[in-house]
Amino acid sequence: MSAVPIIQVDSLARRFGEFEAVRGVSFDVEEGEIFGFLGPNGAGKSTTINMLVTMLRPTSGEARVAGFSVTEDQTRVRESIGIVFQEATLDESLTGWENLRFHADVYDIPMATFNERADAVLKTVELDEWRKTLVRNYSGGMKRRLEIARGLLHYPKVLFLDEPTLGLDPQSRIALWDYIREIQARERITVFLTTHYMGEAEYCNRIAVIDHGEIVALDTPAMLKAGLGGDVVTLVTKDNFRASVELEAMALEPRIEDGVIRFEAPDGASTVARVFREVTPEIVSVDLRKPSLEDVFISLTGREIRADEASAADRMKSQMRAGMLGPGGRRM
C-alpha cells in the first residue's frame, strides 16, 4: 500500500435545489482496497460516485482521485479510472468487440495493445465466443460483464462500480463477484463500489455506511459487526410489550419491530437462558445468531435497508433509463 490514499474525499457535498443529496462526506480509500459504499436508495451513493468520476460538480468540498482533483484536473482523473454505471452504457447496435474498440479509441489505447488486452479481458468475463454478436442479443448478465471488461480495458488505477449487480439473477451475481475479485487480486487495482446488497458488502475490505447523505460508520465488515456488542437475539412472545419492559429491567436494550423483539447481547447463549427464566409472557420463538451487516445497518439507522422494496424501485428506475444525473436528484 502506498502512503498517499488513492481516493481522498474532503467535506464533499452536493445539493439539488433544496435537497441536500450528499452532506459533506470525508473519507480516504487506500490503493488496492475493495471499498464499499452501503446504503438504501436515495442515500447519496450514486451522487457521490458521480462526483468522484467527474460527471457531477460538487456544490462544495473537494475530492482527489489518483492524485488529481475531480474539479480541476478532470481529464487526468478520467484517464485514471474505469467506470461501470448503474444504467447500461453500451451501444446495443454494435458488437461486443466494436464496443471495446470504441472504448480503446477514446482512451487512446494503441491498437496492438488493444487486440491483446481485449482478447484477455473477454476471456476473463467469458464472452470470448460472443465478441461478434450484437450487444442487443446479450443477456443482462452478459451486458454487465461486457461493461466490466470495458471498464478494465485501459488498465485504470481505480475501478468504480455503481450497483454492479443490479437486476442480475443470484447466479450471475455470484459469477460477477468472482470476476471482480479475481481481476482485483491480479491487477492490484482499487475497487470502489456502491451497493444496497448486504451480501456484497461482505466482500469489501472496508465499508462506509451512508444514510441521508452522511457517512454514519466506516470500518471493516468484521469491526462493524463486532461494534454491535455481541450476538443478535430475536424473540417473539405472547405479550411483546410486557416482555420488553422486563428485558429492560435486565439491562438489555430491546426494540420491537414488526411483532419481533430484537436486542444485542455480549454472550447470547447465557442471556437467552436467563430470558427463559425471567420473562413471564409465553415465548413463541427465539433466534440467536452472530450479527450480520443488516443488523449493523439497522442499529445505525434504525431501519431495514428493505432489499425487496429497493429492487422493485430499481427495476422501475432502470426501465425508465434515467437521464444523466441518475437517482441522486430524488428520493425513492
Binding site: M55, R76, E87, L90, Y107, M324
Partner: peptide
C-alpha cells in the same frame, strides 16, 4: 438516443 440508452455517458466520461 445515446443519452436515453446510456451510451452518451461512456462518451462523456472518456478523457476527451
Amino acid at each position: 438516443t445515446d443519452r436515453e440508452f446510456g451510451f452518451l455517458r461512456e462518451v462523456l466520461v472518456a478523457p476527451i
